[in-house]
Write a protein that binds this DNA or RNA. Structure first.
Lengths: 244, 244
DNA sequence: GACGGGCATTGACGCAGATCAAATGACAGG
DNA sequence: CCTGTCATTTGATCTGCGTCAATGCCCGTC
């Protein structure tokens, strides 16, 4: 709840080159810097509720947030996993379409919607970058649709862990480097994983146990996972041909 | 296979105000007109295969195409349903990410990728409109994810028919107007519907029979469907509160 | 060290939807 | 009108995952 505000220079920002501002020149960055502000959220806190008036858009700086849809009877489906540099909100729309929740402690770089929209209209670099990011998200959503519609529970869980393992390699996560084996912290509870994968908590748990028993993954600590053979995990996830 | 080419003025184009060119001024339209060409595909013909080199992007003018993903073992999931005015292809990408297939006879308005990308860089109206369309598609994909992950077979089929019924009202389809009851032609085979909904052909068929028996829909002709009470269909689809 | 509250695991059982198989219908061509 | 092809429906059976319920584990607090 308590959003304590800080101010930092964009030039030293950890997401400077991947976020919506990635293509901005120095002068454009200065203009952005004037309308931006930071907000922090504690793990578990809501960022916005679906239907709420959206007075800002922004980027995840550190931490992880989720985007979920809920049916009247309570069934939930996660429709987005927001990692650092991902963009939240839709320019030109008044109310939020999804619930956004901080699943870890979260810092966001926010812009009031109106000034941001004005800047977007006059700064092609921002709109261009936003288009690129939106197209990437659309691709991700479509791969996710294949997972939800056609994969088995085991394949779903393996696909999810594979995604995280891959990411931990790319980012060069400390765990992965130290051991030489891709390993990472699970950023989601079983309940969140279930909502991500269109399964129940129990099924997720059973499938993780199964992967553990078959030695496809190792649970080092409660939430710390190692993937000794990423290619094998990819095979279980239903992706025969696999690179990286 | 036989792509017979025609030339038509953009000003009289049926998708002029909804496609990627919607925001273009007269002079911009003239430039587009110079690099465009039409291609026709017969029902059932492939437009592109996933992995193929994409030498063009374009808009659906008339007819319907599908975007599908296929796993190595043959499992298929539709990830996009392309209706008139929808955009095909991703600027800045060399190869197709999905199979695109004409499910009805199809006419596309194509642009060679290179000239189109150049125009996009110099014509903000095009990039702006494309961003808007991509954001809409992302929203659609996310609603689709809720359907795939959390809805029952009956809800899935009802949701699909509801989408078509709604669309036939908005477009002002001749069938719907004549009878006063929303009705429409099913543009997809059972197999395509199954790929759309993440079900099998048999389950789709059974659920349609069920909806027919419960009088939620009527099958006027083989492929012609009437929805006497759209609100009831929405309820079955899992959308209690419903407008339009 | 006992207690309580979240999360996670495990087990027993049932059902929605997949699978396998066959019948029916819709058409186009001879 | 018969015949082959393909889409669709219908039936019988099987199974993966959901549901319900109990137990275990981790931690912070008293």
């Amino acid at each position: 709840m308590q959003d304590h505000t800080v101010h930092v220079q964009c030039s030293g920002c950890p997401i400077r080159h991947r976020a919506v501002c990635a293509r901005c020149e120095t002068d454009e960055l200065l203009r952005l810097e004037q309308i931006k502000y930071y907000r922090s959220f504690q793990a578990g806190q809501p960022v916005i509720w679906s239907g709420d008036r959206m007075e800002f858009v922004g980027s995840v700086v550190t931490g992880i947030a989720t985007l979920t849809q809920t049916m009247e009877d309570g069934r939930r489906q996660m429709v987005g996993l927001l990692l650092p540099s991902d963009f939240v909100g839709r320019p030109g729309r008044a109310t939020a379409a999804y619930d956004v929740t901080a699943t870890t402690d979260l810092v966001m770089c926010c812009f009031r919607k109106k000034p941001f929209e004005e800047m977007m209209a006059t700064t092609p670099h921002i709109a261009q970058r936003l288009l690129e990011m939106t197209l990437d998200e659309l691709d991700a959503a479509r791969e996710w649709m294949l997972l939800l519609g056609r994969k088995t529970a085991e394949e779903k869980v393996a696909s999810f862990l594979l995604m995280l393992a891959r990411r931990s390699l790319v980012i060069g996560c400390s765990h992965s480097k130290a051991s030489g084996v891709p390993s990472f912290e699970l950023p989601l509870t079983r309940a969140d994983m279930a909502d991500f994968l269109g399964l129940t908590i129990e099924t997720v748990s059973r499938q993780i146990t199964k992967l553990k028993t078959s030695k496809a993954v190792r649970l080092v600590a409660n939430r710390l996972i190692q993937v000794p053979d990423i290619r094998r995990l990819a095979k279980i996830a239903g992706q025969e041909e696999f690179s990286l």
